[in-house]
């Protein structure tokens, strides 16, 4: 007895099913909910054997392996809960780190540790944040997959106790509503109301607690359509591309401010990633 999960094939089948359903009935609320159910079933079928585990395994290896000019592992990296504590660390990020005198998200902190512990140059550490196939694998994505997997089931608990954390949150809030570029788009254009779709893709309302919780706790995710694991930094980067903005720099303050805004709004929800998305 053998069962092969053909990710892309299954995706096409689910899409065909959704279209077939919509063609039979007039495009009413009923057809929309059937389409949503079809997509939900497809997601459920993918849960078993999420290829994100391949990234998690590679990331765990990278975390423990002595690397860089200093031939050191990242095991002494302080992700906020003390040197080397990985379990639950992601659920409290971003946070203020006194040694860097800066609010950092996971990706920025990893770059910091690669520089401080492994002696890698800052430019080298942030060189390849988003992978593309076998030729261009990203170590950051793999490390993020591993570290976030160690927070699965942990309740989001981001603090604004430090003035710099509170400031990051407020600025992130402003950036969320910032409209610009040739299309006047901002985050709020797509993520400011309930029950909206772009084409057939459901859009979470990130101005509400439930929306922010559901969205934030399911990144990073393995994107079946890309065959890649994508981090929250990637999610922000690609949203701004579609907003017709210039390119959001990896680990920039604006990326951390927005992450802070959304992570804090997700407080109280159990973290549930790496997930799998279409």
């Amino acid at each position: 007895m053998m069962h092969i999960d053909r990710g892309l094939g299954a995706g096409r089948r689910a899409a065909a099913l959704a279209i077939a359903v919509a063609l039979v009935a007039a495009p009413t609320a009923l057809a929309q909910s059937s389409a949503a159910e079809g997509i939900a079933k497809y997601r459920e079928a993918l849960q078993d054997g999420n290829p994100a585990e391949l990234w998690e395994a590679r990331g765990e290896g990278l975390w423990k392996e002595p690397r860089g000019p200093a031939k050191a592992s990242l095991e002494q990296c302080d992700l906020g809960l003390g040197a080397g504590v990985v379990k639950g660390a992601y659920a409290q990020l971003p946070k203020y780190f006194a040694d860097a005198d800066r609010v950092m998200d996971l990706e920025t902190r990893l770059v910091w540790c690669m520089v401080k512990l492994q002696g890698t140059s800052d430019a080298d550490a942030r060189k390849n944040p988003f992978g593309n196939g076998t030729d261009r694998k990203s170590n950051i994505e793999a490390l993020v997959a591993y570290i976030t997997s160690e927070s699965r089931g942990v309740k989001m608990n981001v603090s604004l106790a430090h003035p710099k954390e509170a400031q990051m949150y407020k600025v992130g809030d402003k950036i969320f509503y910032f409209r610009g570029g040739p299309h006047d788009f901002g985050c709020v254009t797509c993520h400011g109301a309930d029950n909206q779709r772009i084409r057939l893709q459901d859009l979470p309302n990130l101005t509400k607690v439930e929306g922010a919780q559901k969205a934030y706790t399911t990144w990073p995710a393995y994107r079946v359509s890309q065959g890649e694991l994508r981090t929250f930094q990637w999610r922000l980067n690609d949203c701004f591309r579609q907003q017709r903005f210039p390119e959001l720099e990896f680990g920039s303050d604006a990326s951390i401010a927005l992450t802070m805004f959304l992570a804090k709004n997700a407080n109280g929800a159990a973290f549930d990633a790496p997930a799998i998305k279409r």
Binding site: M1, M2, I4, D5, R6, G7, L8, G9, A10, G227
Partner: peptide, 12 residues
């Protein structure tokens, strides 16, 4: 070539 990228196999 019809099997997806990063394949998953389950059997008993």
């Amino acid at each position: 070539p019809a099997v997806s990228k990063n394949p998953f196999v389950s059997f008993k």
